[in-house]
Write a protein that binds this DNA or RNA. Sequence first.
DNA 1: CGTTGTGAACGGATTCACAGCC
DNA 2: GGCTGTGAATCCGTTCACAACG
Lengths: 256, 256
Amino acid sequence: MATGRTHRPATRSRGIPEATVARLPLYLRALTALSERSVPTVSSEELAAAAGVNSAKLRKDFSYLGSYGTRGVGYDVEYLVYQISRELGLTQDWPVVIVGIGNLGAALANYGGFASRGFRVAALIDADPAMAGKPVAGIPVQHTDELESIIQDNGVSIGVIATPAGAAQQVCDRLVAAGVTSILNFAPTVLSVPDGVDVRKVDLSIELQILAFHEQRKAGEEATATAESPAVPTATRTESATDQGPDGDVPAVMPA
Amino acid sequence: MATGRTHRPATRSRGIPEATVARLPLYLRALTALSERSVPTVSSEELAAAAGVNSAKLRKDFSYLGSYGTRGVGYDVEYLVYQISRELGLTQDWPVVIVGIGNLGAALANYGGFASRGFRVAALIDADPAMAGKPVAGIPVQHTDELESIIQDNGVSIGVIATPAGAAQQVCDRLVAAGVTSILNFAPTVLSVPDGVDVRKVDLSIELQILAFHEQRKAGEEATATAESPAVPTATRTESATDQGPDGDVPAVMPA
DNA sequence: CGTTGTGAACGGATTCACAGCC
DNA sequence: GGCTGTGAATCCGTTCACAACG
């Protein structure tokens, strides 16, 4: 089973660039904040500052969605919130399951950012029978045995894996077999999935290692460049305007 | 190879591209697994498969580090583990503090991937006085009041923020003022930091939103049906735009 | 006016394909 | 023969700069 579909070209012909998609949630968050303050319109410059990107990039990003701004004025906040939400698919309800209810799984279950944006935690699943029935974030934990039926009964297409590394692939296989087609993986493992299934990974220790690399470089530099400016740099509290590297992502779709 | 006198491009980032740095931890993890199985050598093809990248990219990445392979044979696993560890700065000890010991902070404190890679949790810090003294992952939680002294006494340069969004900037400011120069931010907020401070962000809800985008596209494709829904509803408010919206910041790379 | 929207220039990252070496 | 290392080609994303337009 699960064999060769032709490898999908990274970006669909008429699609929005991946880099842009990855920033839409950022814009959405900034816009939501403005919306809550009842700000009616915003310029690309202001919004870009709030989102921590530069304005040319933001305008280019929005241009892929359509012409939603007004020259000389800016963008209508409410309208843009709607357009981006729709583009991201957040106007519909996405039931998700979280598998692995340790500290991390519990943190995810309690995370407000999920529930507040179209994501609904349909179930919490754990392999430990002792957990079964215990409520976490108000939702009773269910045993792994029920994974398949939970997914089918709730029409779940997005799964979150927060298990130990050793269990991740097995859980992944079961999720996929049961119909899940998008996976957010927190376990430090490379998951193999059939074509057509998206995987995004979040690896806590990888991020730290990247920081360590830069930290080490700073330390080394300081030794060679003793004649720099005095003391601390200015109090320039610029927003961190530097782009994260090629984001932490490895888009998806594994080889089979 | 450019041993020539052609002078290098402006930004003196002596060598390794960001994209490569971001993948080194991935390679390291795959290599460590091989090492534990006592595999002596590995080809670029095999290692690439284990790390989930393609082999040309892997070879190009390694070429930035030096010529550590043997043509016709492959790479020596142990040697490569050492070289990458050194490059990433993992041969030294990095004391880190985690601020905000909720579920997420506890998950981080318990996360084995930290300790096993040169990172040492020097302290857990929380604002709740009731937490003080309580051990989490074997380490007693300390109160925020002691943040500055902890950082200075331990020579901490890397801080992890796992607080609610509202507290993140304030915590960040204190960390930076006390000497921290690299921050891993889990709070859904854009952090402002002075030049010279690196910030990397991990935003749980952003990843889910990106998945939702792709998921939606799959669904639409399969139906190929009706295009976008037309009319823009009234004052569309995606969901219960409750408290903290999700938000993301764009981390930093190098000092200016 | 001021600000958007976008072609064009640029630069970095990925991929190709093969020379070089074991 | 097999595999690494790498210039060259290509792809993708960012930035520039300005025309279009309310």
